Simulated assay, not measured.
Amino acid sequence: MRSCFVAGLVLAAATAACGPADSGLTPPPTPSCAPAPASSAVSGDVLDATKALLGTLDDDQAAAAQDGGLSLEDLSDVQRAAVLAVLKAGLSDGGYQQIVDATAADGIDRYRVRLTGSPEAGGTWVVHFTGPGLAVNLAVAGNAISAVCGASPTPSPPAATPARGATSARRSG
């Protein structure tokens, strides 16, 4: 226990001594977004856009969208445009511009969309849009809209795998 406390103090001291202020580096800006002004018209636009998105998906895709989500890489151009239309309907102009900028920088195919809840008038549902540079949760509850945006953690690179025909030594026993 004491060694963990000491290690924590050393880590804190090292972080303070070597942090961004001393290194000349600045952390990337934390994305933020604002929902479009809440009104029944705006929530209706989000509902219409979400239903339009679901209308472009086949049964397997619709199930995947409600389950683990869909990679935009696996969607057609029409389906990708429908995903972006949902976000555009629910976010402020500045919030939507962050989506456009992030997907342009990272590649839109590296993003995923997932829906939770049941999009219906007066209902509650969430559109989750995540990728390497940005995560957005657009929640609709009746006429209320809430948007939470943040930086996505950078995914780890895939683990190295041995080349074809290579062997790895294993210890038996």
Rank of each mutant, 00 (worst) to 15 (best):
L134K: 10
T130D: 15
L53E: 02
A16H: 15
D45T: 12
G117N: 09
A49M: 02
G68F: 00
T154A: 11
P35Y: 01
T130R: 15
V78P: 00
Q61S: 10
A159Q: 08
G123M: 09
A105N: 06
L25I: 13
I145Q: 09
S3M: 14
D60H: 02
A63F: 13
A85S: 15
D93T: 14
G133P: 01
S118D: 14
G24H: 14
S152F: 00
A121R: 13
G133F: 02
G117Y: 09
R171N: 10
D101I: 14
A166G: 02
I108R: 11
L70W: 06
A41P: 00
Q97P: 00
Q98H: 07
T167C: 00
R110F: 06
T124C: 10
T56L: 02
R110G: 03
T30L: 12
A64D: 07
L54R: 11
A141D: 10
N137T: 04
V78M: 05
G94R: 05
A14W: 07
E73H: 15
V46W: 02
V126D: 12
N143K: 06
D109G: 15
A159M: 10
R110K: 04
P31I: 05
A36Q: 02
L54G: 08
V6A: 14
L53G: 07
P157V: 01
C4L: 11
E120P: 01
Y96G: 08
S39Y: 05
A169S: 07
T116Q: 15
S39D: 12
A65V: 12
L87W: 05
P28T: 15
D45E: 09
K51D: 12
C149Y: 06
C18G: 10
I99Y: 11
G69M: 04
P158R: 11
A104L: 14
F5C: 06
R80Q: 12
S3C: 06
T130P: 12
S92M: 02
G44A: 10
A169T: 12
S152G: 06
G165Q: 04
S23A: 15
A104M: 13
A163L: 07
Y111H: 04
